[in-house]
Design a protein around this nucleic acid. Structure first.
Length: 524
RNA sequence: GCUCCAGUGGAGUAGCGGCCAAACUCACGGCCCUCUCACGGCCGAGCCCCCGGUUCGAAUCCGGGCUGGAGCACCA
């Protein structure tokens, strides 16, 4: 019995049970597993980006999954910028808005946006409370010395200080009276904890470099992520935390603080890193930033960059990215994301609306060749979309035309110019002799169908791809289209129209200023 | 070294004791459709890390390996 037969049989025997089964199948259709202890309307989650640059593809996973969960549970999505290190993870002032734009493009809107650097007094207050509870102490051990003590599960001499002294020293830290490295505030955990990563970790340290945000430029005593984020998660009512495996120990560290305050720790899920195929560039904000500064990439939206902005400029919809991210699920191991699945998602979204046009590419190893068409009509009229005849046709003037060299048949053989008719190639005369428009040549005689453009009226077009720029000639009808439109260049792929009569690129990579059109290649 | 976590076809996910000689999406190969190498349809190849144990029965439970990842920062 196969599945269909079984179902039929079950419908006869126990229709109720069948309904149940089908209902299960529908509710189980979520790509993401249910959140533990989640109730509708009660879920609060946050994305906590470090604003050090626009987002790369890996970052898309957090808002995609959180946004999807927030929608599923009718919950809340907080975006909190964890910008508490003005020095080694120095925030980029443009990145705050850039990240919010990237989230919007993915199709989500945070219910609340916070900046940790606005909340310093809150952290100080909680530090003082923690000191009162005996949960923190000021420590002037040099980092290396403490590290050694910690490795041996030995307390440092500062651990037993009285609360008064700790308050005084912490106040002096806040006032900036120490130099960086001179004094820190540690959370008193368990100096003999079997996991050395959890022993008396640093909650506040001193940084002389002013924060780039004017509002926060005067602060010198900065909280570490585990303290800041732990306090904020509780204060903002976060119920479910999702974070990377690099922060596996964070929850365990933060629990010590939560225990002192008698707070309940949120549910935590971890996941691995996302790696992308298809790109030569390493996926990290700092690497991309360096490549841009070195001129290897022209910007965050360079088609060769694995960034959200780059995919956006290529005409890939946020939804296609979100779907791919959600399909990755919640596993804790590292995952490879195949760009082809993003492309497949996007193709499904745009195929129906994208009209078809011709582009003859002109590459070094496959140049455009110019040929006269002898005889035949003045123009071809291929449809705008094969599935939508009602959209009509475009007009592609014949006469002298361009073909991609690899599309030429052998001398004396036939080829079908799509939307025009059958021609015979004469290599000596560099001509295509028009025969007829009898489609049986294609259907029954194996004549191949190729795309072509007129040599004169076509648009000089730059096609920008992940693998570099390609020159080409787009058929005249493309001139009537608008920037931002998605079209398919037949037998080439889907592209986004980026600009007509582009300015020359200052870097030398990109448009020269001679082109009529720049397009960005999305995918096949 | 110490401490955590994970291992299902090429990629991702599902299955969590018998319905699994394992399902779905993408990729790949072939065929059909087609005036596109798009869309659509059909077919195909290919997977339970290893070894023990529990059990009538294990991809599923237990133990031990192996492999991979992460933390042990005054980074996030």
């Amino acid at each position: 019995m196969d599945a269909a037969e079984r179902r039929e049989r079950l419908a006869e025997l126990a229709p109720d049970r069948l309904e149940e089964l089908e209902a299960d199948e529908e509710t189980d259709d979520h790509a993401l597993p249910d959140l533990p202890n989640a109730e509708d309307g009660e879920v609060v989650m946050r994305a906590a980006p470090n604003p050090n640059g626009p987002w790369h593809m890996g970052h898309a996973r957090m808002p995609s999954v959180i946004g999807t969960y927030a929608e599923r549970y009718d919950g809340e999505f907080i975006c909190r910028f964890d910008d508490t290190d003005p020095e080694t993870k120095r925030p980029d002032l443009d990145a705050y808005d850039a990240i919010l734009e990237d989230i919007e493009y993915l199709g989500f809107e945070p219910d609340l946006v916070l900046k940790a650097s606005d909340r310093m007094e809150t952290y100080y207050e909680h530090a003082r409370d923690l000191i009162d509870l005996g949960g923190a102490y000021t420590c002037s051990c040099p980092a290396a010395e403490f590290s050694e003590l910690k490795a041996n599960a030995e307390a440092c001499p500062h651990r037993g200080k009285d609360v008064e002294t700790i308050h005084e020293e912490f106040a002096a830290m806040v006032a900036g009276e120490y130099d960086p490295g001179e004094m820190v505030l540690r959370v008193k955990t368990d100096i003999e904890h079997k996991n050395p990563a959890l022993r008396d970790w640093v909650a506040f340290r001193l940084i002389d470099t002013p924060h780039p945000r004017e509002e926060a430029a005067e602060y010198r005593c900065w909280p570490m992520l585990d303290f800041q984020s732990g306090v904020d998660d509780h204060l903002t009512g976060v119920t479910h935390i999702i974070r990377g495996i690099d922060l596996q120990d964070s929850a365990k560290r933060q629990r010590f603080v939560y225990d002192y305050f008698d707070w309940e720790y949120p549910e935590v899920l971890h996941w691995g890193h996302v790696q992308l195929d298809e790109y030569n560039v390493k996926i990290s904000t700092s690497t991309i930033k360096e490549l841009i500064e070195a001129g290897e990439l022209t910007g965050w939206d360079d088609p060769r960059a694995p960034t959200i902005r780059s995919l956006r400029r290529r005409g890939i919809r946020g939804q296609a990215i979100v779907d791919a991210m959600v399909e990755l699920g919640m596993s804790t191991s590292d995952v490879d994301l195949a760009m082809s699945s993003v492309y497949a998602n996007n193709r499904e979204l745009i195929d129906d609306e994208a009209n078809r046009y011709f582009l003859v590419r002109d590459r070094a190893d496959d140049p455009a060749v110019e040929l006269d068409v002898a005889g035949g009509p003045d123009a071809g009229h291929p449809p705008l979309h094969p599935d939508h005849e009602d959209r009509g046709t475009r007009t592609v003037p014949a006469g002298t035309v361009l073909l991609e060299a690899s599309d030429l048949p052998a001398d004396g053989d036939r080829v079908w110019l799509k939307g025009y008719g059958c021609v015979r190639y004469d290599a000596d005369g560099e001509t295509l002799e028009y025969l007829d428009d009898d489609i049986t040549a294609v259907r029954e005689e194996g004549v191949s169908v190729v795309h072509w453009v007129p040599a004169e009226e076509s648009l000089e077009t730059l096609l920008r791809t992940v693998d570099g720029d390609v020159a080409g000639h787009a058929e005249p009808a493309v001139a009537d289209l608008a920037v931002d439109e998605m079209i398919q260049f037949e037998r080439v792929g889907f592209v986004r129209l980026d600009a007509f009569d582009p300015e020359p690129a200052p870097s030398g990579y990109g448009p020269t200023g001679e082109e009529d059109l720049v397009t960005y290649y999305a995918h096949p």
